[in-house]
Each structure stands twice: as structure tokens, then as C-alpha cells.
Design a protein around this nucleic acid. Sequence first.
DNA 1: GTCGTTGCTGGTAGCGCTGTCAACGATCCT
DNA 2: AGGATCGTTGACAGCGCTACCAGCAACGAC
Lengths: 366, 366
Amino acid sequence: MGRKRTKSGKIRLAEVAELAGVSPITASRFFRNPEALSVAKRTRVESAARELGYVPNLAARALASQRTEVIGVLIPSLTNNVFSDVLRGIYDASEGSRYSIQLSNTRYSILQEEKLLRLFLAQKPAGLIVTGIDQTTESRAMLEAADCPIVQIMEIGPNPVDMMIGFSHYDAARAAIAHLFAQGHRKIGFVGARMDPRVQRRLDGYVSAMKDAGLFEQRLVVTTATPTSVTLGGALFTDLLARQPGIDAVFCANDDLALGVLFECRRREIAVPEQIAIVGFNDLEFMASAVPTLTSVRTNRYEMGNTAATMLIEAIDGRRPEQPVLDLGFKVIERQSSSSRRSDGRPAASGAGAANKMIALPNGQD
Amino acid sequence: MGRKRTKSGKIRLAEVAELAGVSPITASRFFRNPEALSVAKRTRVESAARELGYVPNLAARALASQRTEVIGVLIPSLTNNVFSDVLRGIYDASEGSRYSIQLSNTRYSILQEEKLLRLFLAQKPAGLIVTGIDQTTESRAMLEAADCPIVQIMEIGPNPVDMMIGFSHYDAARAAIAHLFAQGHRKIGFVGARMDPRVQRRLDGYVSAMKDAGLFEQRLVVTTATPTSVTLGGALFTDLLARQPGIDAVFCANDDLALGVLFECRRREIAVPEQIAIVGFNDLEFMASAVPTLTSVRTNRYEMGNTAATMLIEAIDGRRPEQPVLDLGFKVIERQSSSSRRSDGRPAASGAGAANKMIALPNGQD
DNA sequence: GTCGTTGCTGGTAGCGCTGTCAACGATCCT
DNA sequence: AGGATCGTTGACAGCGCTACCAGCAACGAC
């Protein structure tokens, strides 16, 4: 009775404590570290909270404890299918935990990333997930100075800020080219769009593989800074054909481009794989049902996001992983579009680091 | 000097106020309503804040003001391309504003939605964006009791909770079928997956159009609760063919299914559109570059999200839109897959409500 | 028996900001 | 000229929670 209620009529921690017959601070502890309470008080607080329908006020908690329960996520794109899989993994992992996700889109700009980073850091996030390893020096400094766990995702490189999870785009591209070599292809073109750092490294892998074989020619490479799309794949392939009519295979920096190339081949009545082989990157769901089915390099996108968030949360809660850098690997999924035998979908080359576990990608799961 | 600094070394509002030679509350006002200050103090506070690199503490603000600057967004899926476009629109609109987006995934479950809604509402969001019009009665009650603006997106229906933006899936499906009728098709199958309420209403539209023409047969409809995918499109189409070998057109509840149907036709050497016409739904980017190009019903997904967030922010700031329910319409984009003349891509039927402005969809923009 | 030590509990004092109200001078109206 | 009104500013008192430290009982070691 004597208690004044907040104007919103909300239940406060004090009410719960009163009903449970304990002090507010004890009730508070129940929500943060139940083990610290005696069993008797624990059950009393629990039932009192349930009875009143108590929901903690996160703003008050954040203010008092000087830290938030927010995980900041910086990704370069919301459109790209690749990131929606990663994101789904992150959100799934965060569910059930007490952390919430704060997402921001850098639009492939490291300057924008720096700005957002500054914004995030000012709110003292519990943890941070950032895409890639190409931060500005300023961003890098901020990340290193940050007093929260950080995971870099999407690729593996030297000098992790903290934790890191991804795979080598360079090696993956080399594996794709090796597969094409194995199928007897020699004049292999490269088609790439957007040309963000990861696509760039795929190009580097392609170039090195081709050079190793003494087959590299600059004219085999067609790229653009334009955002990727299926239509663009067709257009870039058209360019490539004009420059190098004699090519016998195309390695596409992603699957949308590969699909565009496939359609363009159909339009031009170029037989795939007899005249031109096609290899994509990411192994999106549609690759397996295209006609012909399309070879691609499978990447563990969902698992990348999911593991990153899981590791981050563990680290926040003080259980740092014994293995802070995790290589999730990749796998060349050989399908009809690059098979001289027109076999269907059995795995070919597989590259990986320490932890190359291939899990079923729950594509289109929800 | 006498000022004690917070242990984190952070700049507080009080420091800014001191440097500017004003009271803390005046400095506070500068950040919330600069117009209320005299020009002199305004510039003083502004330069002081910049000099110190002040960043407001959002938790403290939220606690003191009893409201957050968070917009809650409830969507049923993170995978579906449709929602990634909507989300991009929402994030783009929220950028620059002082509101941040809190996203949650209901996984197509209205019970999960109810749970998340309760969670969100407890934190007093500044506004809420929810998907669709099929909430539980409990959710509905909570939404109506909420003291923040709310936008329902993705479809239009009776009794909006507050604001509403979308289009009629029923009418859109009817328009698609009308287009197929106009092209001379009669035995039109329906292929649908997931069967969420919006897909269900597309089916209803299909059924009513077919019944109006006296052409409806239950065996023409193949649906599943399974999540949608390209591969599934092929499988469902295979089912449909087995049940109704004589069909001359297929209306797919989304574009992934349509692509799967196209591939399956190619696999079976069924000529499109000569033997079977295909119409999809949403007009994703790849529809225009498939071979043959695929007819689809274009929906304004990016604009839906963008306008919803913009309207919501305006409403939060006290400027309620004169038109709380906005029909963004749709447009049947006729392409080769359903054209008896094999024409390419000129618009056919177009259905809409009040505001059927067709904007260029910035597909794959970032 | 005294002195830690451990396990649990509570009191106090803020966290950094804003709502509310009051005060003040300037301006306006009759 | 007097009062009302407006625009601008500041003092005060929290918002709901937790960090910190102190207290207290139970227990074991010497």
C-alpha cells in the first residue's frame, strides 16, 4: 500500500521483492545469478515475479550496471542472400540468450563502418560482430581498445582483433579453378561484381591458380563495381564472350552471376557444360535445381553467423573459446554445369582449415 | 576539476553544459529540441559537445524519459527475399532518424509473435511494425492498448490497429489469373508453399477467379506447408502434372516456385509458354532475365518497408499521416513465360488502391 | 575458544539523464 | 501603465536498477 506505483502501472523489482519478502537487491540477484541465492529465497522470488508478471527494465539495468545487453552487428548489405543466411544464424543463436541484436548496414563502405562503430562503441555493447578484416586503421584501433569481445566473420586472415570465424576466399577460388582444370578446362574466364574485399580475394585466388598453370590472361577477367544481380551476370558474360570468344569455362564470383551466365548461354544456345562450363560461389539453394544443375563452392553461411554469435555470447559470459580463430572451410560441389561426365552433384575438391565440418545448410528454413 | 569523472572516462552531459556555461537541462534540451534554445546558447552547446566528443547515454535517457527510441519490427522470416527488401526499406528510413530498429523473427508463428510482442511492449518502444493482419486476439488487444504508433505491413485488410500499408494479395492473384485468361489459358494450376495467411489469400484470389469463370477444380491446386524453395517448385509442379496432365498454365505463389517450375519444364522438355505458361509472384530481379523471361506480379516491397518506417517515425514525432491506410498496389508484369505473342516485358493488368505509384525497385541496391 | 573463512543478505548511493514546475525578462495587449 | 503572455532558462527530484561494501550466521582450523 505504502508503495507508490510508477505512473505506467509497471511492476518494479521492488514490488517483486516485497511480495517475496526479500530485499530488492536479493531479487535483483535472482535475475542475474540465481545460484547465489538460497533455494528458499530463489523459489520465493521466482513465484513472486511470475505472479506479478514482472519484466525487468533494461534501460535501468543498463544505466546502473554500466553495460548493455546488446550485441552490435555490422554487415555490408541487407540485400545479399549471403548475409541473410549469416544473419539468420546470428539471430537464432541470440534467441534464448539475454542479449539482443542491434544491426547496422555499412553498405560496403569502411568509412560508414567506422562511423557506425563509433556509435556502437559509445553505447558499450556487450559484444560486437563485424564483417571482414578490412577495417580502417581508425576502426581497427577502436576495436582493439573496445572492452568487449569481438568476432570478425566471413573470412579468415592474419591478426584477428579478437575472435574470427570464416574461411579463405582465396583458397576457395583456387579450389574451384583446380576443379575446372581437373575437368579439362583451360580458358577459364572470371566474372565478378561489387568487388568487395572478399570478392577481390576470390579474384586473387583465380589469378594465382591460372598463373600457376601458365594460363592467365588479363582479358579473361571481367569485373564491375556495380551491385551483383542475375541480369548483370548475363551482361558481364556477354562482355567476356566479346573479348574472349574461345573460353571454355566461367568462374563466377557468386551464384546470382552464375545463374545469369546460365540464362545467357541458353539465350545464345551455348551448350552447358559441353561448350562452356559454369562454376558459381556460395551454393545457394537454386543451384541444385537449375538445368543443368550448377556447380558451386559451398560456404557455411548460417553456421558462420550462428557460431559467431554463440562464441561471442560465451565470451561475454566469461567462457572464452579455446580456439578463437575458426576456419569453417568450403566445399566444391560438383554438378552438371562443370562435369565432363554430366554426373550429378557428388562432391569434388574440399578445402578447409581446422574445423571443416560440413553441416547441412538449413536453406530456406524459415 | 571538482567534477568527478565517471569511471569509464566518458563525457557526460554535465561536462558539456559546464564547458558551454549553461545548466545541464539546457544542454539536454539542445539534443532533443534545439529550437527551444536561443541561438547563442545553441551554438555554445553545439561546439562544446563537438569539442568533447559527447555521445548521449541512451540508457539514461530511456530511464529518465520513460520511453525508448527503439522501433520494434516483427517479421515472420529472415530468409525470404521478400522480407529482406522490406527490411532494407525500414533500415534505410530509420537511418538519419534518432530511432533504432529492433528486429525479431516470429518464424511464421502467431504464438511466437504474441510472446515477442509482450517482450517488446514491456520495453515501451517508440513504435512498432508488425507483419500482416492475423494476430491472435491477445496480441490484438495488446496492440490496441499500446501507447505507441503501430504500422501493419504487407497487406491491407479491415480494422487496422493503427496504420496499415500493403496491398491486396487477393486482388493481385485475381489479376494474375485474369491475365492468364486474357492470354487464352483455361486449365490453370496453382502451386503454393508455406501457406502463410498472405499466400492463403493469393490462393483465395485464384480460387475465386477460377470459379467466376467456371473453371475451378480442386485438383488444380497443389500446396504444402513446407518452406518455399526453387527445388520445391519443381517438386510441386511434378505433383501437379501427375494429377492434371492437361494444364496449360501455372500460377505460382512466389517467384522461387516459378523458377523451379521453369527448370522442371526444361528438364521435361515442356515448352514455355507454348505448352505451359508460368506466372510468379513478387517480381524478384531474376524473373526478367530468365529464359524465357518470367511473368510476375510486382509488389513494392522496398517501398512498403520504407514508407512504413517513415510513416511510423512521423507519427511518433506527432505528425500523424492524413491517410493511415495506404494501398501500395501491385502490377502484373507480362513477360515471355505467359505471352502467346512472346512479347517481352510490357505491363499488362495493374491493380491498385489509392496510391498505386509504381516506383523503380532498387533491387540489389546495397 | 578465537580467528578467519565462506555463503548469503541487505543498506546505501548512485548510474546520466529528463519531467515538472517555477522564475525571469521581454513582449504584447487593452 | 498594468497585467497577461511568451520564450527561455534553471533547480529539483527522481526514473528502476545494480555496484559496492558491510553485516551476519554457520563452520572449520588452530
